Computed example of a mutant assay.
Amino acid sequence: MSILLRWFFVPLLLMPLLSPAGQDDDDDAAAPAMPPTRQAGEQPAAGVVALTPQQQRAAGLVVQVLTESRRQPEFSAYAKVLDVQPLLALSTRQRALQADLAVYRGALSASQLAETRTAKLLQDNAASARSLQLAKAQRIADASRSAAAEQQLLSLRHEALQQWGPVLAEWLLGKPGNALERLWLRQDVLVELALPPNRALPPGIETVRLAPREERRQAVAARLVSAAPFTGDITQGETWFAIAPAEGLRTGMRLNAWIAGQRETSIGVELPVTAVLWRAGQPWVYLQTGEQQFVRRLIAAYHDNGDSWFVDTGLKPGDKLVVNGAQLLLSEEFRRQIPDEGDD
Rank of each mutant, 00 (worst) to 15 (best):
M1Q: 06
M1A: 07
S2K: 12
F8N: 02
F8T: 13
P11Y: 01
L12K: 12
L12A: 12
L14H: 07
M15P: 00
P16A: 11
L18P: 00
L18M: 13
P20Y: 04
P20F: 02
P32R: 12
P32G: 13
A33Q: 06
P36G: 05
Q39H: 08
Q39K: 04
E42Q: 15
P44K: 03
A46K: 06
V49W: 02
P53Y: 01
P53E: 12
Q55W: 01
G60Y: 04
V63L: 00
S69K: 13
R71V: 05
Q72F: 00
P73N: 07
A77V: 03
A79M: 02
K80M: 06
D83N: 15
L87D: 07
A89W: 00
L90M: 11
S91P: 04
R93L: 10
Q94D: 09
R95K: 10
L97E: 15
L101W: 08
L101R: 07
Y104G: 04
L108A: 15
L108Y: 09
S111A: 12
S111K: 03
Q112W: 00
Q112K: 03
L113V: 10
A114L: 02
T116E: 14
A119W: 04
A119L: 11
K120N: 05
L122G: 13
Q123W: 01
A127D: 12
S131F: 04
A135Q: 07
K136R: 10
Q138F: 06
Q138W: 01
A143R: 08
S144R: 09
R145A: 14
E150G: 10
Q151P: 10
S155H: 12
L156C: 11
L161W: 04
A169K: 08
E170H: 14
K175S: 13
G177Q: 11
N178C: 00
A179S: 13
W184A: 07
W184F: 08
R186H: 10
Q187P: 11
D188S: 12
V191L: 06
V191R: 03
E192W: 12
P196K: 01
P196W: 06
P197G: 01
P197R: 01
P197S: 09
N198S: 08
A200Y: 06
I205E: 03
E206P: 08
L210I: 11
E214L: 11
R217Q: 14
Q218F: 05
V220M: 10
A221D: 13
A222F: 05
V225S: 08
A227P: 13
A228Y: 03
G232D: 12
G232P: 09
E238T: 05
F241Y: 10
I243E: 05
A246I: 14
G248N: 13
R250G: 04
A260E: 13
I267M: 07
V269L: 03
E270T: 14
V273R: 05
V276W: 01
V276H: 05
L277D: 10
W278P: 03
W278D: 03
Y286F: 15
T289P: 02
G290P: 14
Q293L: 07
Q293C: 00
F294R: 02
L298Y: 01
S308E: 07
D312H: 14
K316C: 02
V322H: 01
A326F: 08
A326R: 04
L328I: 15
E332T: 12
Q337M: 12
Q337E: 06
Q337N: 03
G342E: 14
